[in-house]
Nucleic acid binder design. Structure first.
Lengths: 212, 212
DNA sequence: TGTACATCAGTGAACGCGCGTTCACTGATGTAC
DNA sequence: TGTACATCAGTGAACGCGCGTTCACTGATGTAC
């Protein structure tokens, strides 16, 4: 419910031994751990506190309410996905068109892979607790990774200049849709390859379609 | 939790005046109504019963548990979307390529439109309570509408034969992703037009992409 | 048609539960002099 | 360095709440003869 934002507080690792050290981080970590096991809908503040080994009320010194913790967890999970994506790209170095395309595909495949490996965290990242603002403004890591990958594809001549401005939106939609539908078992996992092929075709073509 | 399926029971409109008449339908209708207002996460069986004007335990004569009601509601909401889509297509009759394309776009636009008009019902249709089976097998109404629209597009020469087998999957992913991301305010509503353009391009091209 | 009975869709009280949040508190840590 | 005090991150008991589900029940409806 509440719209207040999470207090920034000590981001740096506080020294251990002082009361708890860094309860905020600990709560976040364990919240994500429990969510990834049971889903957001089955998470309670008290569970998190218990897991961390702290009384239920302690959390209120770090988050105004449960919602704020969940929003922080959602944002954090989103960054986790970015890390996962970065790792998946590292096997494909170089500036060739081939390398750029392989990195691009790895980005999409890892997006879906993260969703499959961590379905509950993926669901958490989107929907009600989605931070929104920062991502809509293109400031999130996954978005930045996508922009960078498309820039490289463009530099390698794999994207038609007329299409480039719409590329992020198209790619994100198609991959996000694929991830969601595969998660819901509405599409087979194999569909992803077809989708990636189709995306590449769209990006490379001139952007003209028959008479309207 | 439970995996038991909803008892079929009297699908036909039972005569009013007998106890309740058709409590199963009434529960379903009011569950959807409440969900569309407050979201699934805020729905309780007791609320639904109260809204219908029946005791909380009455529901158990029609659904084994709350989960079963929610799954039935999810399925019903999905069919609602199909109705919404059908209505949106009716302005574009004819067998010309132009008409087929307009109907196709109307299908995508109405998908997103339904999501925006009924965000909670849209969210309900996918995710945890998604029936899965029937849709995965392509038996759901929205899927059938998509297949029909693509067949018409194909007949009108707007889809390259090599692409046709992958068309459903590509289109559904891209549109579903767009709907979800627009709902989460991660993409502007205007992005949909670009995406539809890109989809049409993909469908019409030959399916070949540079050396891999 | 009338009666006896089985079926079935409701009631309403009760259950035990875990939840988010509050409050007054405590005691460790940090700081000013 | 030592002391007095302010700050702050914890505790733990308590709150009121609405929840899903159960149970024995009731009374209306349908049915066999």
């Amino acid at each position: 419910m509440s719209l207040t934002k999470v207090a920034p507080r000590s981001r740096a690792k506080a020294k251990e031994g002082y009361h708890h050290g860094d309860l905020e981080t600990a709560l976040l970590v364990h919240a994500k751990k429990l969510i990834s096991q049971n889903g957001v809908e089955n998470l309670s503040l008290r569970q998190v506190a218990a897991k961390v080994g702290v009384s239920p009320s302690a959390a209120y010194h770090h988050f105004p309410d449960k919602d704020a913790l969940l929003r922080a967890a959602a944002k954090s999970a989103f960054e986790d996905m970015a890390e996962f994506q970065v790792a998946s790209q590292q096997n494909f170095k170089g500036t060739s068109a081939l390398a750029a395309r392989k990195r691009f595909r790895a980005l999409g495949i890892s997006y879906v892979g993260f969703a499959q490996t961590n379905p509950h965290l993926f669901r958490l990242s989107f929907g009600p607790y989605c931070g929104g603002d920062e991502m809509a403004r293109g400031e999130s890591r996954p978005w930045q990774l996508l922009v960078a990958s498309l820039d490289q594809l463009m530099a390698a001549g794999e994207i038609h200049p007329k299409i480039r401005p719409h590329a992020e939106v198209l790619v994100w939609s198609a991959i996000h849709g694929a991830a969601t539908l595969i998660l819901d078992e509405l599409l087979p996992e194999a569909a992803l390859e077809s989708i990636l092929d189709a995306i590449e075709i769209s990006l490379k073509s001139s952007g003209k379609v028959g008479n309207k």
